[in-house]
Computed example of a mutant assay.
Amino acid sequence: MAFSGAGEAVGRMELGDHLCLPYAHADERRAVLLAYVRGGLAAGHKIVYVAERDSHDVLPDCLRPVPARLEPFADAEPPRPAALDPGRALESGRLVLRTAAEIAGATGGYDPDELMGLIATEIELALVQGYRGLRLTGERPLAWPGVPEPDGAAGATPGGTGAAGGAGGAGADAAALAGQEAAERFAACERRIAEVFRATRPQAMILCQFERCRLDAVRLEELESWHRARVRADDLYDDGRLRAAPLFGPPGLALSGRLDAATRAALDRVLALLPPGAGLVCLEMSGVTACDEEGLRRAVEAGRTSGGRQRQVLLRGVSPRLAGMLRDTGLERAPGVTIEELAR
């Protein structure tokens, strides 16, 4: 599953936080990072973005606007003030791009103490410049052993040079050793950041990005252990009785709370947020605590768009009680509906 609704909403991050975004889908990453950057601009923070690629004046793809037809839940987003536009922030200096090679060179190849000194300098500079705090985020800058780099950059070192040699022999051994050393330096840096941020709560926050498909379960668990929490996209709706968080790949909603008469109007508003152009939508139901037949029917009928087109609906995390209701009412046989029950 690309996103389960677990974790801390990015909009609730505070100065002193060191969180991670282990994303599985480009839209998930984009939603979180745009909210992170826009939130920082609204709060008067300076944003420093560390990219793997060498570019100081080109906005990263994950912060660029896309056509509304490609943006999940585009209609749910209100118009944004120009002051919250990442492109304009880059031009004005409120958003600054650094490169992984640049950071590695300034810290002696990611020495933990040198890196903390660099972060402290960036915080001090932001405050001197009149900002209320600093927001840092970075693409995964260092290779894990055995994990292929994008665009054929396998074996890249923090300084941006590749291991010499072919796929076997001394070249492969050197690449493996470089990867192991990079992983150890990376682990030491993350642990050091976690220690400092827990102890001092500086006027900064850090959001580390990791692509899940490039990490096995053991490494992912290790990465997450160095951060206070995993971050997720902000809720689309929450009134204390019904909460809806976005899902990515396939697009959809993670529903929590009640789907009954008390939340009928809210449920209709929430379901209307489903992207109309998607041929498959997912409703994560594991957080549903109360549901009547009509609430279940409306969830099933989310497969029919306002224009009358039928699309596929995946009901995921369905409890045994809800599965029984679907069978008893015949809703499980509705066109285009697939049900995934919770593991017992």
Score class of each variant (00 low, 15 high):
R264L: 12
A35I: 04
P141A: 03
D260H: 10
A262I: 02
G257C: 13
G249A: 15
D57V: 14
A343K: 08
A272Y: 06
D113T: 14
E284N: 11
L33W: 11
M285K: 04
R333I: 03
D27Q: 13
R212L: 07
A164F: 04
E222N: 05
E8A: 14
E184Y: 00
G138A: 14
A204H: 13
E139S: 11
L253N: 02
R88K: 14
F186S: 04
L33R: 12
E52H: 04
E190S: 14
A272C: 08
G40S: 14
V300A: 05
R228S: 10
V270H: 06
L127C: 10
G146D: 10
A170P: 00
V37G: 06
G249E: 12
A76F: 03
L127N: 05
A74F: 06
E28K: 02
Y36N: 05
R304N: 00
Y23N: 07
E195R: 15
I119R: 07
G295M: 09
G11V: 08
G171K: 01
G109S: 12
A31Q: 12
D292I: 13
R69E: 15
A233C: 11
G87Q: 13
L331P: 04
T137C: 15
W226C: 07
G249C: 10
D54S: 12
E294Y: 07
E8Y: 07
L142M: 15
E332D: 15
G39H: 08
H227Y: 08
C213P: 00
G279V: 09
R241M: 13
A299M: 15
I123T: 09
R311P: 00
P202S: 05
R311C: 12
E71C: 12
G303C: 09
R214Q: 09
Y237K: 03
H45C: 09
E224I: 13
R311N: 11
G40E: 09
L296F: 08
A82W: 03
G117S: 13
G317K: 07
P158G: 03
A334F: 09
E221M: 10
R297N: 06
A175S: 12
P65W: 11
F197N: 03
A254F: 07
C291Y: 01
G11S: 13
C208E: 09
G308S: 09
I123G: 03
P78L: 14
A182G: 14
T200G: 01
A43N: 01
A104C: 12
T107G: 11
L207D: 03
A106E: 13
P320M: 01
Q312Y: 00
A302H: 04
A183H: 08
R198G: 10
G87M: 05
G257N: 06
L247R: 15
R185Q: 12
G307M: 10
L207P: 02
Q180M: 11
